[in-house]
């Protein structure tokens, strides 16, 4: 089985600033991490591979430093990584991003399953996974809590809902986005990290994946961010409570009741 896991590098801080001109997150000078939901997707892919055999390819679209997230995926069991990086991709919205990733998946070839995290914590749209499925014209399942009963032709997905869950039979090839309930990701080992450092990660450009210029970047993006603003500052109150545990608890409960929180 060949599994592609789409992973994104996101800011590693909540102090990210928005460029007033482009309305996009300023990423320079800010620490970067793997999108937390994608970590669960990588883990699930590796678990499926360990159980059934096959190959896991980590795929990311981003600037050159995004190869870091691919190496993290390699350190926990992905077999290879591919970075899509090209100025032409800059400014892509979720539809254009999905198009680029779908083209890369077609170029990889023979893919049975695409796994993504539910959403990226910087954009929070949860659209790229479904967008990839739409571009590939593959079935999709979102908010997956479990992937089970995998056969040669398909699998069962347990999907999370507000009111509970459902089970869906899905045929390969398919796209699945996962939630954190699906597994507990393993912690990379130093040995894994050191081995991943030595791996060659190919960088594919727009031309490499046959992307049409009008379908990527700002030109390929049917949506525009027209305004962004930080949320209103939360007023922080602090109260020092002293005394025995029982006395402190009584004071805290009273304060919560005064704020209608208890």
């Amino acid at each position: 089985m060949k599994i592609v896991v789409c992973i994104k590098q996101v800011p590693g801080t909540t102090d990210a600033k928005i460029d007033p001109e482009t309305k996009r997150i300023v990423r320079e000078g800010i620490s970067a991490v793997t999108n937390p939901f994608d970590v669960y997707a990588v883990e699930e892919a590796v678990r499926i591979k360990e159980k059934l055999g096959g190959e896991v390819v980590a795929l990311s679209m981003g600037p050159p430093r995004a190869d870091m997230v691919l190496r993290e995926a390699l350190s926990v069991g992905a077999d290879s990584g591919i970075l899509l990086s090209d100025r032409a991709f800059g400014g892509s919205d979720t539809w254009a991003t999905g198009y680029a990733l779908a083209n890369a998946i077609k170029k990889i070839g023979g893919v049975d399953l695409v796994l993504c995290g539910k959403q990226a914590v910087d954009g929070d749209t949860a659209q790229v996974g479904p967008g990839i499925a739409a571009q590939l014209d593959w079935p999709q399942a979102t908010y997956a809590m479990a992937i089970t009963d995998i056969t040669d032709s398909g699998f069962v997905v347990k999907r999370m809902h507000e009111d509970g869950w459902d089970l869906c039979d899905i045929d390969f090839p398919a796209v699945v986005t996962v939630v954190k309930d699906i597994n507990q990701p393993r912690v990379p080992t130093l040995r894994g990290r050191l081995a991943a450092q030595k791996v060659q990660i190919p960088v594919w450009t727009a031309a490499d994946i046959g992307a049409e210029p009008g379908k990527i970047g700002l030109d390929g993006s049917p949506t525009r961010v027209v305004k962004t603003a930080p949320p209103p500052m939360r007023h922080k109150d602090s109260l020092k409570v002293e005394g025995t545990a029982a006395e402190c608890a009584a004071v805290i409960v009273r304060q919560l009741r005064l704020k209608s929180l208890a």
């Binding site: 430093r65 912690v187 450092q197």
Partner: peptide
Amino acid sequence: KQDTEKLD
């Protein structure tokens, strides 16, 4: 830290 960019 695991997410260090300067591992070596």
